[in-house]
Design a protein around this nucleic acid. Structure first.
Lengths: 332, 332
DNA sequence: TTGTACGCGTTATCAG
DNA sequence: CTGATAACGCGTACAA
């Protein structure tokens, strides 16, 4: 593979001149022409590894997401990519698969490869590897989940508002015993969505003693198990608010297995949009997040952070919206 | 950020010794101990950019997929990741978004960053940028789609077999006018699935004059438009084989809009598994691909290619399987 | 086994 | 504006 020296020799100029042509400094037009000729003739491609070493920076952003198969994250990536390419960065995606160890590995790689910045949706409450990233001066933006004790920008959705929206809707529909299946307590999203659920019930003057709350794992089997447990409980619910998309699938599967009809026997509202929400029968009521805009916001925050590393961390909170569909409508 | 020189000074050894400790060469235990102490004390992290430059290689694989929101590709990524990490590589995902220009950009980055290898699901019939990658000596494996004139390993599924399976099933169910919505003609997958459809019809002794075939774009709106066109045609079909997952969604939406019931009015079989195939009402019959194994196979091919760059390109073809569900069952 | 010194391919500095 | 040359941080002959 040709180097800048080969190009210089071929064009009969110095390597400095070649470098200048490549980077847009002002050079004599005739020389520049010879250089570009040589570049195409030799099929020269600048070695970014060498450039990165010399300039001590990269044009690469790492986006470490906790689950590539969750449409919530992949939708967000689109927003990130659009901003990144406008800012002149390339995006590489890393899938931590909800595994803290894999996440730590990718954080290591991002640091060791001297990536220009990292957008991360944390896969656990562990913060040491993230703090070492921040401590090393790598620009970091957290998305979706908040992490106590990490000084980094964060882009979040108003989980409490969304959960309250969902729960209030179920109350208004006349459901009596509204359950909540939320995620692991150490995730800020799980805690906030639970809080929104409780706030809406309190607002309606209802007692909530915790017997209708289940903590699961944000994955499908967890949702299934939680719903099973709820159905087995003495206070059998007639509606359920499920705090993320994958668990909603588990809940629906469980209800189907018990031959319970939705919403006649049990009303359902899920957090996160489902790409096929309108396809299921009944169609599924969901709390939607502005995923694309969330991606954009995260990318913009990262760009700002790179531009001014020493400003205070920002915290951006986006609003959710309720998409009412059949699964939560009380038949009269 | 600390360099290897800082560590050497702190441990009172030479940089060579530090490097040896880091890379597992044999050094005096006492010295090694001092080095590791210094490493932790200084929070030293090897600079992979420098290492990559020096060794002229990387431990990164680029996986360039045509659509991060298509579960087919993200499922495959899991298989790739598992093999990659076992082989000591990190995987970075690049989303070309079915856009040949973005794909070319990522290919450029992979080449310029001297990535160890590339797994690519082509986004178009264009081959020049891919050939320049191959020509530059970068190990490349193509997945899902075949590309004429590119000397690279390929991991594919038996599209013709899968399409025939689907079509034969519709024939056996007694459907009379079986349509086919396939993808752009320049994609090998689209052509092969169409061929399988035709083969199965011929096998059943049926004429097929092309009036029930539509070429769409492998995306949802394309599927919708194709189905609309089929419903408007004189030979209105009573069943349809749809050649990928996203178009299947478009077809289903179109049928719902026309208040046609599936499978009573129109039977449906889709290519590619849908994560919610069992959730829709009716449940959707699909031709499933072994996505995880396909990912593994691609990664294994890449590892082999890196190990022996000059062997002949291989071509791995995996089998599909038909998942019969309600959407294709003729009611009697 | 250990240390010295060179080179990987760029960009940046400094004379000219 | 151009060219020679010193870094960037690391691995590895080579010599000790």
């Amino acid at each position: 593979m040709a180097t800048i020296y080969d190009v210089a020799r071929h064009a009969e100029v110095s390597v400095a001149t070649v470098s200048r042509v490549l980077n847009g400094s002002s050079v004599d037009p005739a020389m520049a022409e010879r250089v570009t000729q040589a570049v195409t003739a030799l099929r020269y491609r600048p070695n970014l590894v060498a450039r990165n070493l010399r300039t001590r920076r990269t044009r690469l952003w790492a986006v470490i997401i906790s689950d590539v198969r969750n449409p919530f994250f992949t939708d967000m990536v689109r927003g990130i990519e659009d901003v990144a390419s406008a800012e002149g960065y390339s995006v590489v995606l890393c899938n931590s698969d909800e595994d803290a160890a894999k996440e730590a590995d990718y954080v290591d790689v991002a640091l060791a490869e001297r990536m220009a910045g990292v957008i991360l949706s944390p896969s656990s409450g562990r913060t040491t590897h993230i703090n070492s990233l921040v401590g090393a001066g790598c620009p970091v933006v957290l998305v979706d989940r908040e992490l106590g004790g990490v000084r980094a920008d964060a882009v979040l959705t108003d989980n409490e508002q969304g959960a309250a929206l969902a729960t209030r809707h179920l109350v208004e529909q006349g459901f009596e015993r509204i359950a909540c299946v939320t995620g692991p307590q150490e995730y800020s999203t799980a805690a906030q969505r639970l809080r929104g659920y409780r706030a809406a019930l309190a607002e309606a003057g209802r007692d909530e003693d915790g017997s209708l709350v289940r903590f699961a794992d944000f994955r499908e089997p967890g949702g299934h198990a939680a719903m099973t447990s709820l159905l087995d409980s003495p206070m059998r619910p007639d509606a359920v608010f499920v705090a993320n998309n994958l668990m909603t699938i588990g809940v629906l599967r469980c209800l189907a297995e018990h031959a319970l009809s939705v919403p006649a026997d049990v009303g359902v509202v899920g957090f996160d949009e489902l790409p096929w929400a309108e396809f299921a029968r009944p169609t599924i009521t969901t709390v939607g997040q502005p995923t694309y805009d969330e991606g954009r916001a995260a990318a913009e925050a990262l760009a700002r952070r790179i531009g001014s590393p020493d400003t205070e961390p920002t915290r951006t909170v986006l609003s959710t919206s309720l998409h009412v569909r059949e699964s939560s409508l009380r038949e009269r």
